[in-house]
Every structure is written in C-alpha cells, then in structure tokens.
C-alpha cells in the first residue's frame, strides 16, 4: 500500500488522515518491538553465550551480558592452525573446562564451504529443474497434469526416517558416498517438490492472457517463460532460492549418513560432532551457530528487496 496521500482541500480529512497515520505508525512500532523480542530473544542469547566461557554459561541467573567476554571460541574457528596430530600435540583436557576447543574446530570453515557449495548447487539445480516444470503445470494444459502435481507431492509425504536406509543404498550404488554430490542429489530431491509447488501457485496467479499475449507475440514456450514469466516472478524465485538454500544449509540426517570426512562433511555435521560421549561445550556450539547464520543472512539481505517489490501491477485492465 502506498503512503497515505493528503487531500489539501479538506482540513477535516487531513486531520483524520493524520490520526490514522499516527495510529498506523504506533501499531507498526509496537508490533515490531514484540516481534523483535520474540525472534531476537533466543538469538541474543545465542550471541551472548558464544562470547562466554563454559563456566559463565552455567551461572544462575544467566549473565545476559558476559562478565568476561572472550573471543576464543571464534579464534579457534578462524585461526586454528593445522598441525599434525601426534601424542604430543593432541588436546588433553576436557572440553567442559572452557579452556579447550575441540580440534575439529578447524574443520568448521571447510565444512562451511562444503555447505555453501552444496547449497548453491542445490539452489541452481532447483531453479533449472523446478522452474520449467512449475511453468508447465501452471500454464500448459497437458494430459496428466494433475497427476504430475500429486506425484511430486507424494515424494515428500513419507517421513525421512523411513527413507534413510534406501537413500543410502541409492547413494552407495551411485558411488557417491563421502562426496558432496551425494548431498546435492538428495537435497535436490528433497527440495524440488516444494519448489515446484511454490512456483506453480505463483505462476497460476499470473494472468493467463499474459501467457497468451507472449505466445502470439512470437515466443515459444521457453521464451515465454524466460522473457515474461521469469522477470515477473522474481519475488517467488527468491523465496524458492532461500528455501532451497536454507534447507540444504540445515539438513543433518542425510548428511550424517552419506559423509564421512571433511572432504564432504557439512556444517551441521561438524557442529554436531562438537558433542561427544564425554562432553559438550555449549558456548562453543553457540559460537558455531552464530557463524553458521552469517552466510544465509547475508544472502537474504542481498535478495530481500526482490521479495518485497511487487512487479505484476498493470498487466490487466485498470
């Protein structure tokens, strides 16, 4: 909605508008604050605890602002130098001490890179595979169209737990164990049904006549999609990209099964590895969580404006 415009001729009307505008601003402010509290509360705690020592994190009541903020959790992640692990260089203490960071901390950045590669590949493939399918289902009347939609949906109604073992068999038979390609392929299968679903519903909301106009204007189906539908669906494309990226970024169960070494392990696996039979460092895991959040949020900020810009106005009538 456009900002309220004032009608200069009518004083009464202007006063009324001003009251409405004030009320609007106030409610926006109040709701924003409530929302921030709800969303940021846990995040603030995540951030704060990542700067605390393991001893401080268990204080009662909690220290919202660290007494002695420490950067060592982050130092361990960013500056740990690779050393050959021998009896002499091994870490000896118990991680609970807080003075100790697991040596796998140095795997965090490489694993993040793996996660990034996987997520980006999944996003690209999602668009490549999902966009044409969604367009076809939304705008082309072909035999078996309804069937196609429900078939695609069917692939996502079965709980992943039941699919872990057969997924593993497929990946093993494809020879992809411990390779990031295994994750790209499976995440694609996991995300693409919803990608298609989201895009179908968006494409359907675009007027049919736009499609017809483009085709009469000389576009093949592919050109119609590229030149007319894609530019108009940027918001939903960005939503879909975020969806595919974050689903891949966060996935844990399948990555755990398919990957074994840092050649292919993704961020969630390394983070989960910071917990062990003997110990866990919450502050360190929280630091890892903080770092994990950064790339997706940066991406989201970069693409955010495409989500909130409406593009379809003016297509029809008026």
């Amino acid at each position: 909605m456009k900002p309220t415009t004032f009608d200069a001729r009518s004083e009464i009307y202007r006063n009324k508008s001003q009251t409405t505008a004030r009320l609007r601003n106030l409610s926006i402010f109040v709701f924003s604050i409530l929302l921030l509290a709800y969303v940021l509360g846990p995040i603030a705690w995540l951030l704060s605890s990542s700067f605390q020592t393991e001893a401080e994190i268990v204080s009662v009541p909690p220290h919202w602002i660290p007494d002695e903020p420490t950067l060592k959790n982050f130092e361990a992640i960013f500056f740990s130098e690779f050393e050959e692990v021998t009896y002499d260089t091994r870490k000896k203490a118990d991680p609970v001490s807080g003075g100790y960071i697991p040596s796998t901390a140095k795997d965090l950045l490489p694993s993040m890179w793996n996660s990034f590669l996987v997520s980006i590949a999944v996003v690209m493939l999602n668009l490549f595979v999902g966009v044409p399918a969604a367009y076809a289902m939304a705008k082309i009347r072909f035999w078996g169209r309804d069937g196609t939609i429900y078939t695609i949906l069917t692939t996502r109604v079965i709980p992943d737990i039941a699919l872990v073992v057969p997924f593993f068999l497929v990946i093993k038979n494809l020879g992809l164990l411990d390779h990031i390609a295994s994750l790209i392929v499976t995440y694609l299968a996991v995300t693409v049904p919803f990608t298609v679903f989201i895009l179908v519903s968006f494409f359907e909301s675009l007027p049919d006549e736009l499609d017809k106009a483009a085709r009469v204007d000389g576009c093949s189906r592919l050109q119609t999609l590229n030149k007319v539908f894609l530019p108009l669906s940027l918001p939903s494309l960005v939503a879909v990209m975020l969806f595919a990226f974050l689903t891949s970024w966060n996935e844990f169960l399948l990555a755990l099964m398919f990957t074994q070494t840092i050649a292919s392990q993704t961020l969630p696996i390394i983070v989960a590895g910071f917990t062990s039979d003997f110990t866990i460092s919450f502050s360190f895991i929280n630091a890892a969580g903080v770092i994990a959040v950064i790339p997706p949020v940066v991406l989201a900020v970069m693409f955010e404006r495409y989500i909130v810009s409406g593009l379809t106005a003016g297509a029809v009538k008026g």
Partner: peptide, 20 residues
Amino acid sequence: MPPHKRDVAMVFQSYALYPH
C-alpha cells in the same frame, strides 16, 4: 501449429500488457 509459428496478432480483452 503453435501460435508463435502463425503470423497472427491479437488484442486481448484485458490487454495483457507486460507489466515489467
């Protein structure tokens, strides 16, 4: 024969202009 292969032009009731 698909539309883009036919030498036809069309004006639609809703105009169907390309908004972008």
